[in-house]
């Protein structure tokens, strides 16, 4: 049973979050502000409370706001923190991620997306090891970036440990990205590398395939974490956050 700390000054929102998350089988602990979050974390680390696995943290809270609270959390803890905030500006997201948030969800949130992100963070934290016990896999047929694992021998792809079914073209595109993380591929380049009989001028189909790939691998395809659109240039793979 994973325990999630929900910090928000609005009791109704805490209530809604409790309903959604408890329906998924998580145990919920509530906090009204940043100071309470720190107190609860301190208690759990001293063994007074059961251990917490994830924090949903609102940014705008009285007493101590989410950004300062996150900053203090990161001094001692490495458990995943998802910021939950009404602030949707890019600069706010960048600030949150810089301070140490693992993910960012804007209010009003889509419950499905929120739960997907919570699950993703928990899986990565628990399965891939909170002590960074990332299994050192010398098998060259196994590629891993963020929560995505590609097992080339089995032609199998997993996202946060759950298998994802891809078409052969999508699989080839993903493999190309996984082999060169961070590199920006122009659509024409992807087309040349993936398609067996490239027809000139048909690069437009690449965008469609990548869109599909994103829909399968990303929680929110419009705000991708792994397969990023570099507008006007191409696409690239990142480590996620």
């Amino acid at each position: 049973m994973n325990r999630i700390l929900v910090a928000d000054d609005d009791a109704d929102i805490r209530g809604a979050l409790r309903i959604y998350l408890e329906a998924e089988g998580y145990e919920i602990v509530e906090a009204e502000n940043g100071q309470e979050v720190l107190d609860l974390l301190g208690k759990s680390s001293r063994g007074l409370l059961p251990e917490l696995q994830l924090i949903l943290l609102d940014v705008m809270m009285p007493v101590m706001d989410g950004i300062i609270c996150l900053h203090k959390i990161r001094e001692n803890y490495n458990l995943p923190v998802i910021l939950l905030t009404a602030k949707s500006e890019n600069s706010d997201k960048v600030l949150g991620l810089t301070v140490g948030a693992d993910d960012y969800v804007t209010k009003p949130f889509d419950p499905v997306e929120l739960i997907a992100r919570v699950k993703s963070q928990l899986r990565r934290y628990l399965l891939l090891g909170n002590a960074n016990s990332c299994q050192e896999d010398n098998n060259s047929s196994h590629l891993t970036i963020g929560g995505i694992d590609v097992y080339d021998d089995e032609k199998k792809v997993t996202l946060d440990g759950e298998e994802v079914s891809l078409t052969p073209t999508e699989y080839e595109i993903l493999k190309l990205f996984m082999l060169h993380p961070g590199k920006v591929f122009a659509p024409a380049e992807i087309y040349r590398n993936v398609w067996e009989d490239p027809v000139p001028g048909a690069e437009g189909t690449v965008a469609v395939h990548i869109r599909h790939l994103r829909e399968k691998l990303e929680i929110d395809p419009a705000e991708p974490r792994y397969i990023i659109v570099v507008w006007g240039q191409g696409y690239k793979m990142t480590q996620g956050n």
């Binding site: 437009g204 690449v206 990548i210 869109r211 507008w231 006007g232 240039q233």
Partner: peptide
């Protein structure tokens, strides 16, 4: 502001929407 390849960005944008348009019953021609 930077140099942007106009045909690439257009095909990227069209690619993003092709599926959605198809479900709306619209055929996109580029």
């Amino acid at each position: 502001t930077q140099r942007v390849n106009s045909s690439v960005i257009l095909s990227q944008a069209a690619g993003e929407y092709e599926e959605k348009l198809k479900t709306a019953g619209i055929e996109l021609q580029t």
